[in-house]
């Protein structure tokens, strides 16, 4: 469904991603692992259209996404949950969720998807009138995921959703993601938290200094000596 072919990207002439190729198939649950500054967010933002690759192609459902503006990519079914939540802080939870379905093709289905998100995260329903900036970190993450879901994604891209959350919230969020995946949603999960990521995704890529150094299914990644040493501290 999504295929990155030799993508290069950077900022002000400094290359951050070099020759990155990866793919996410229909119904896949793929994780992208990497340490701080590896270039994970840059990669995700290339997919979403916020960063323009200097070279390479990003093929989604047969067409190249390079140069397509972010709002159109969202309408095409790729919704990103950005690193650090990035909610609209002075809007209520409900308004944030409504914004998730702002794209013209998503508006008509907003009410039913809103219903769905409130069922998935009942906490959001309780706090629908609260300003998003005053939510706890875990609640904000739920709201950010909910906001992305209301766009009606076929591919959900999450950038470090477990960052800074208590284990209880991490569990709740990953359980919700598991349910969504079982319902047919394709997921690309960016994580530094390998143990969590490898418990849930089916396969993954390891990104180091802008290059994919390893790819494979969970068992392969978990047993790789380099991964064990560098990321799991074993």
């Amino acid at each position: 469904m999504l295929e990155l072919q030799s993508v290069h990207a950077g900022y002000d002439g400094i290359e951050v991603l070099s020759n990155v190729s990866l793919s996410v198939g229909d119904g896949d649950y793929v994780t992208l692992l990497g340490a701080n500054n590896a270039g994970k967010s840059t990669l995700v933002n290339c997919i979403s259209g916020l960063v323009r690759p200097t070279n390479g192609r990003i093929i989604y459902k047969g067409s190249d996404l390079v140069g397509v503006p972010p709002h159109e990519i969202t309408s095409m079914g790729i919704c990103q949950v950005p690193e650090g939540r990035q909610l609209f802080p002075s809007m209520t939870v409900l308004e944030n969720l409504l914004m998730g379905g702002i794209a013209p093709n998503a508006r008509s289905r907003r009410p039913e998807r809103l219903e769905f998100v409130f069922e998935l995260f009942p906490r959001l329903a309780e706090r629908r009138k609260q300003q998003a900036g005053t939510l706890s970190g875990g609640e904000q993450q739920m709201a950010a995921i909910g906001r992305a879901l209301i766009g009606g994604p076929t591919l959900l891209v999450l950038d470090e959703p477990s960052l800074g959350l208590s284990p209880l919230f991490v569990k709740a969020i990953f359980e919700a993601l598991r349910g969504l995946h079982q319902g047919g949603l394709s997921i690309l999960l960016v994580e530094q938290n390998l143990s969590v990521a490898l418990r849930h995704a089916q396969r993954g890529y390891v990104l180091e200094r802008g290059e994919i150094v390893l790819a494979g299914n969970n068992a392969k990644l978990r047993d790789d000596p380099h991964v064990r040493r560098a990321y799991l501290g074993l």
Binding site: G49, H71, C79, G151
Partner: peptide, 12 residues
């Protein structure tokens, strides 16, 4: 409030 998020949710 957040231009990048606005673009990400589909605002032109």
């Amino acid at each position: 409030q957040n231009e990048r998020s606005a673009a990400l949710v589909g605002v032109n």
